[in-house]
Nucleic acid binder design. Structure first.
Lengths: 231, 231
DNA sequence: ACCTGAACACCGTTCAAGT
DNA sequence: ACCTGAACACCGTTCAAGT
């Protein structure tokens, strides 16, 4: 059993753990969470790993492939909470809440995946999450086709919210002041009040936190799905 | 009236129309629609305009600013259809349908804006669209706060759908075959059937077109909003 | 087998100089 | 006033050569 093709791959080299496809992807996901998508370059990641840029190409085909690996590791890191048909409203809310939290732990992951045209959700763990959610909708009485659609819509709601709303609060652009974001109307919706009767009247309202807005979106979803259930 | 500071800016130079901030932004938006976000670089746009890259910097501060101008022109190019509270369900559906079509006419506009952390929707025309939609929700009986939230959720639904669903069909990644996309389950949700009872059973269903999926999402929204109306 | 260093073709952006 | 051409510091990626 000492022929060359069964010999173990060395685990260290020059005092540093040997790279693998997975360790490189994991490092990319870490880097993304710490510095954001713009900073994640082949060169900066190589420097972070104490290696030359060329070395990464022994484990990933190119930058797109690197991001694909990072996305797979990202997806494998979250499990759906238990989903009980008897209390589907609360459990669906918990599913959405926890999935949102997972997305926010890795800001820019979805932005990056979509700007690189990478289709996510191929990891077995995420497939099981999807299957469990379809199962929940099917068990409460939705036809399978609607259960599938409702599952896709749920995931899209969460991903879209993180992408389009949370990203603004979690990483505000340089020119806006963070506390101005929570005022109503928000900075990007301010115009001449005479043309905008309803929008300008929102200035009298209590400002919404992102959490409140998210709860509202999920409430709409829950009510919308409930309305489709057989009576 | 011939003093130097009232003299008209020349409209042509070397047989070519003079650049303006707006014409540069419009060219960027055109270019985006034709070649996609990855091809839109300062250098390629300059070549397209028959000018050196440096010339663009006389009208926009940098690439981010260029994209901001393109986003403003994009927003100014769509008007909400009339929204009548008496038939709010149909009119809300029409709003969503037409807004989706506008987004799809300029693929990558939202992806690009979000990957560059640009907050859109500052153009007066888009502000009026937002105001009209809040107005619709307020007029059918939602409290102003809920009307505002419902408006944000509607726009997020459309933008998220185009971003996360239509972009896949309109510009499929190189490695997937377009007609495989419409099968159920979709390519990125295929796994071992024994672990995925519900997901694998979707293979027996009629495949969903993006339009059908979109209609379903809007139906959920309409029903969810209807459930919040005072009885 | 896996790495480094140098190189290539790109990119955004700036400088100095032209007209 | 507005442009060009050259340059700088980056990027992804590849080549040839090291150990």
């Amino acid at each position: 059993m000492s022929s060359s093709h069964t010999r173990r791959r060395p685990t260290h080299r020059k005092g540093r753990a040997t790279l693998t496809r997975e360790s490189v992807g994991r490092a990319a996901l870490d880097f993304l969470g710490r510095y954001g998508p713009a900073e994640l370059t082949m060169r900066s990641l190589a420097t972070e790993l104490g290696v030359s840029p060329r070395a990464l190409y022994n484990y990933v085909e190119d930058r797109r492939d690197l991001i694909t690996v990072a996305a797979e590791i990202f997806e494998s890191g979250w499990h759906s909470p238990p989903l009980d048909p008897a209390r589907w409203r609360e459990d669906l809310r918990a599913f959405c809440r926890e999935l949102r939290a997972h997305y926010r732990r890795h800001p820019g992951m979805t932005t990056l995946a979509y700007s690189e045209n990478i289709t996510m959700a191929r990891h077995p763990v995420m497939l099981r999450n999807v299957d469990a959610l379809i199962g929940l909708f099917a068990q409460i009485g939705l036809p399978l086709q609607d259960a599938y659609r409702a599952c896709m819509e749920t995931i899209r709601l969460v991903a879209g919210f993180v992408e389009l709303q949370d990203s603004l609060h979690d990483r505000p652009p340089a020119h806006v002041t963070p506390d101005d974001l929570d005022r109503l109307p928000p900075p990007w919706l301010r115009g001449s009040p005479e043309d905008l009767p309803y929008l300008s009247r929102t200035a009298t309202l209590e400002p919404d936190s992102p959490d409140t807005l998210f709860d509202f979106a999920v409430d709409i979803l829950v009510a919308g799905i409930a309305a489709r259930l057989p009576a």
